[in-house]
Design a binder for these strands. Structure first.
Lengths: 139, 139
DNA sequence: AGCAATGTTGAGAACCATTGTCAAACTGCG
DNA sequence: CGCAGTTTGACAATGGTTCTCAACATTGCT
């Protein structure tokens, strides 16, 4: 580490350099609004003319996810799928075939999970809820 | 495909033969009440003296899951984890620290997901809902 | 601009959970 | 017992994801 932090800027700045590759990933993410696997995103970038290594796509997506700028969840096969997200808590209705995604909010569900957890004395909650199905177009 | 089905038997009988291996897996499952990976279950069987191939453990767990006799879900790394379960559809409230699990039913949630999906024309549904928190003991 | 320090990339190897292969062993039934 | 259909297991093969590390880009400094 040796983070001398010469300027003493308090909060350690998360240096994220604006590279061609990261811009390409961001651009790709902006180009669709459903969930895609890292490999699909990688292909998409290639098709857009850019060339970015697969490992870099993974790295970038992970760091974006950690920064809360993209949602990452897992499909039924356990594969990670990603997309840029709005910043409110929500869930997804995802098409198993084409990936079409609907963002849904579920105040009822939030309330229900809180009630259940309280009932059992659990605190510091989080939850995951995703719905998979086949969209009208894919049937 | 090529499912010639020579005898043209209507409902294909799901013959599940009671083998030593399947008994061993069932015994292992009975030996714990939290979620374990297939490999952990395989190790557990070995430690119990039995010897069952890893592939067989996977096969057996999958078929048990399909038959609704065990729950299979994925941890944050995308690995499949399993445990025996009651035979009704339910979700889990899992302690983030010690792993203590409470099975919860949520008819309200089921209804909600169905409604949401119908509203958007999605069919052939499935969903995942898991709640994570800190249990009373771990606070 | 030139340079040094350090974060970033990419090609491919490495990992590792999971599934496929197929001959040998086992089960149920006659 | 003997056959037909299942099941098993050792191992290869997959496939997504991460690691490695030398080459490269970016930033800050002079």
């Amino acid at each position: 580490m040796t983070s001398t932090d010469p300027h003493g800027g308090g909060t350690q700045t998360q240096q994220r350099r604006p590279t061609r590759q990261r811009r390409a990933v961001a651009a790709a993410l902006a180009g669709f609004d459903d969930f895609r696997s890292a490999q699909e995103i990688h292909d998409l970038i290639s098709r857009q003319g850019d060339s970015v290594g697969l490992a870099t796509v993974y790295r970038t997506l992970s760091s974006l996810a950690e920064a809360g700028e993209v949602d990452m969840l897992r499909n039924e096969d356990g594969e990670a799928i990603w997309r840029s997200c709005s910043d409110t808590h929500h869930h997804h209705l995802v098409c198993r075939t084409c990936g079409a995604t609907v963002e849904v909010e579920g105040p009822a569900v939030e309330r229900w999970t809180n009630a259940i957890a309280a009932e059992h004395g659990y605190a510091d909650l989080s939850h995951t809820l995703e719905i998979f199905g086949t969209c009208p177009t894919c049937r």
